[in-house]
Structure formats: C-alpha cells, structure tokens
Design a protein around this nucleic acid. Structure first.
Lengths: 245, 245
DNA sequence: ACGAAAATGACAAAGTCGTGACAATTGTCC
DNA sequence: GGACAATTGTCACGACTTTGTCATTTTCGT
C-alpha cells in the first residue's frame, strides 16, 4: 500500500473549468499523451485532472473524487498496478480504465485482479476511449444507483428531484427539497429555525420565523400520513424541529 | 481545416461493384499500392473507393460514407494528418487505419492526436491489414452499436442528424441536436440553465437570457405531442430542466 | 449579400415564497 | 386545575421570481 500523504495535491490541475459532469482523473506520464487525453475529455465537458506519477495520482484521487480514472499502467516510481489497487481500496466503485500499449500483452486476468473496469489499447480512437469511459460511468450509476432516501412509505430521489409516497408521485418545490435534504442529512438532530434559515435559505436572507414553519407545514402535508400529528417532522417546543425517519 | 468543396468527387471510382458490406476508402498516392489495396478489400467483398490525394479523399469521404478508411500519411498537397482530422470532424467514429513505412518512426501519440484507430507498417501482409480493418469496423459497431435514440414516438439519429416523430421526418437544427443529445445523455437529471449554457453553448458566465428557454421551446414544439404540457422536456421550477424518456 | 438560425429583449403567465393575522398548542406559575 | 405568556400551526393574500412566448435584431454559413 502506498504512503498516506494527505491531499497536498500537486497535480497538473491547470484550471479545467468545473462543469457539473464531474472530474476525470488521468494518470499518465507522457506529457503529449496527457494533452491528448485532456482534450478528449474536455471536449465532452468533463473536468480533467492530470497526474504524472502514481503518488500525485493518489493524492488527486483523494482530493477530487473523480467519476472515473484513466490510468496508464506504465508509470515511473510507483507502479500503476499498485496505484490502481490503492484507489480501489479507497473507493471501490469508481471506475478505472486502463491504457496499455498494443505491444504489451494484455493480461485480462491481471487487470481484473487489479480491479480495473475496462482497458483500451493504444493506439485508440478518442471516440472509443470516450465511449468506454462513459459506459463505465453509466454502469456504475446503474449498479450503485442514485441516492434514493427512504423512510416510512416515502421515497425521495434528490438527484432527480422526485418524490413518492406510497408509490404515488408527490410534487415538491426546490426549496422543499433543499429543506428535506438538510433534515435527512441531520436526522435525529434538533435544528433551530435560525440554523435552518442560515443553512437552507442562505445567510443573507433573514425572513420572519413563520417562513420555516410554513415550509415545515407544506412538507408535513405532503409527506406525513397525518399532518396534524407528525411522526417524522417533529416540533421541539422552544428549540426547533427534528427529523426522525 | 480543409476547403469545403462539395462532392465533385473525382476519385478513381472505377466501378467496384456495390457489395453490401460497405465501402472502404483508400487514400494512397502510389498507383501500384492503390492496386494492391483495392484487390485486398475487393477480395473480401468490400466496395473500394480510391483517392490519390487529400482533397479528393475528403470529397470521397463525404460522398461515400465509407465504413473504414485506409490512409497513407505520406500524401502530396494536403498532409494526411490534416485529412485525418477533417474526416474525424465530419464523422468521428468512422475508423481510420494508417499505413506507414517501417522506416518511419511510428509515433503513437501522433496517431492519437490525429484520431487514428490503428496502424499497419509497410510492408504488411494482406491478411494482417484485412484483420486490422475488420477489427476496427467491428469495434466501432460494438462501441456505437446504434446511435438511434428512441423515446415515445420519436427516433433520433445523432450520427446522421436526422429525427423522426411518428415515422414522419422532423427537421432539427444543429443546436437543437446538441441540446437534445445532452439531454439524452443525462436523462432524468435536473440540469440548470447555467449548466446547459456551459455545456451545450460553451458560455462562461450566464447573463439573464432566454436563450435556453427558446431552444427548449423549439424542441418541445417539434417533439412533444402537446408542447404546452410537455411529457419529456420538463420544467423544474427554480432549478432548470429535466428530460425523461 | 442572402436566408436560416440563434440571441436578445419585452411582455405575459405561472408558480413560489414571505408576510401578517389569527387560532391552537404548549409551558409556567400560581 | 386555571390563567397567562410564549411558542407554534394554519391560512390567505400579495409581492416577487421564474418561466413561456413572441417579435425583433444579430450572427453566421454559404
């Protein structure tokens, strides 16, 4: 296992604009190849972080939490194999696509042992590499599906901004989603109105305290079996609210 | 980028019978080599179109939509590199196999920059070349099996930039295709206007603009059964848009 | 230079959220 | 237990924000 140096991150970040599609980590020592790879992914609107060696690669992996890793096995210092295993230990469901020269014998079993998800032999068409990477990302999304939050007979998908209660769709506004998300992330904790206003509404806004109550009301009406006697969005008299799944 | 002369096509077509397996475009200046290559592919029942220089090659590429291109990098007038890139711009997933003399240093990175899919060094065995070409074609089929995207009664072919709704052709502009493609690639996800402007338009900042809405409007008018009550291109109030197939 | 496509701006329409009033509930003190 | 104050629940209205849509201008490819 590699040394555990905390994110000092000296990776060649080079300001690929944050895109929302996520970051792809490229670990590759050849500068020209770096450039090629960066262009390929940047063209499809991914953010790209490039690391030239294994240690930086691992640091970048920690720091950026990429949606996928493209890894050249031939690396100086730390072997790509070691790096691959380390990354899989940290986050096993981040797909790793291995690059290998056509000359090298592609040992599929070895790749599997490393935990690699796919491989592409050089030379490859950018199109093919992109397709492989996207396929891997999609596959992972299917395997470890979105963050669906469940409680009682409710299902909330914060990513898709959809909600169901008893199988029937429930419409929630974006503010309601935000508030509910904050509650789910801080379940069982008593949250004051002031805190909620700061965290969910944003610090600059300072509406009347009735605002929070109103949103709570809406959420109860939409999600509680009996809105008058809430079982999940509880009032803590004199303190605030508490969410219990 | 090369001049965009429309299919005047002066390529040495020489009546290779149409075969059903598709056409292979050979770009090669040496007449003797032309003959050899033609024979190789004709023997395997491909149609063959030969071009002697870059410009004719590009014209032929447009006109014949080959299933693969065999390209000698050493070309008069237009460099093979330029040609390769141009073809990739037009149809990025048509495989290109590069021929190079054994004397030349095979620069894999360069090939990648060009977007080439594979290379074969001269002298080569016909068998090997054929294998490489067929492998590339197969790979493309696997990678991009069918680019036709279906939802509801719509069929979108992003490769050919054509669309149908209920069997009837629908005309979409290039921006509309781009936007729709982005939506299909990120179905079910809520995409903010800002993100869309960044990813589809390539803007950096977002001024107050109705641009996105306008394109959404157009797409709805062209693809939704009832544009006023969209079923696929949904508005998420306060957040953006979401595409559900 | 022409025509199609895209961006812009104005306005209307729709939806959301905050506000305040008032009722209901809870807690506290007697 | 009862009275009072403090806190919270609930509702409706209006202001504000966001979005739909159209007309117009600008851009861009040919």
């Amino acid at each position: 296992m590699l040394k555990e140096i905390e994110p000092a991150v000296t990776a060649t970040d080079e300001s690929t604009p944050e895109s929302g599609l996520g970051t792809i980590l490229v670990v590759e020592d050849d500068p020209r190849m770096q450039k090629v790879l960066r262009r390929i992914f940047a063209a499809e609107h991914y953010s790209v972080v490039v690391a030239g060696d294994g240690q930086t690669g691992l640091d970048s992996f920690r720091a950026h939490r990429p949606v996928a890793v493209v890894l050249d096995l031939i690396l100086p210092q730390i072997s790509g194999r070691e790096l691959c295993q380390s990354m899989k230990t940290i986050s096993s469901d981040t797909p790793v696509i291995v690059l290998s020269a056509i000359a090298e014998v592609v040992d599929k079993v070895l790749l599997l042992e490393l935990g690699a998800d796919d491989y592409v032999t050089k030379p490859f068409s950018p199109r093919e590499l992109m397709a492989r990477v996207q396929a891997a990302i999609r596959r992972r999304r299917r395997t470890a599906p979105t963050t669906i939050y469940r409680f009682d007979d409710c299902e909330i998908d914060f990513q898709r901004m959809t909600a169901q209660r008893g199988g029937l769709p429930v419409m929630l506004t974006s503010h309601e989603f935000k508030l509910l998300k904050f509650f789910t992330e801080h379940a069982e904790q008593v949250l004051s109105r002031e805190l909620l206003l700061n965290e969910v509404w944003g610090y600059n806004a300072y509406p009347t305290t009735r605002t929070v109550d109103n949103q709570i009301l809406k959420l109860r009406q939409k999600l509680e079996p009996d809105p008058a006697n809430p079982r999940h969005l509880l009032t803590i008299y004199g303190a605030g609210y508490k969410f219990v799944p």
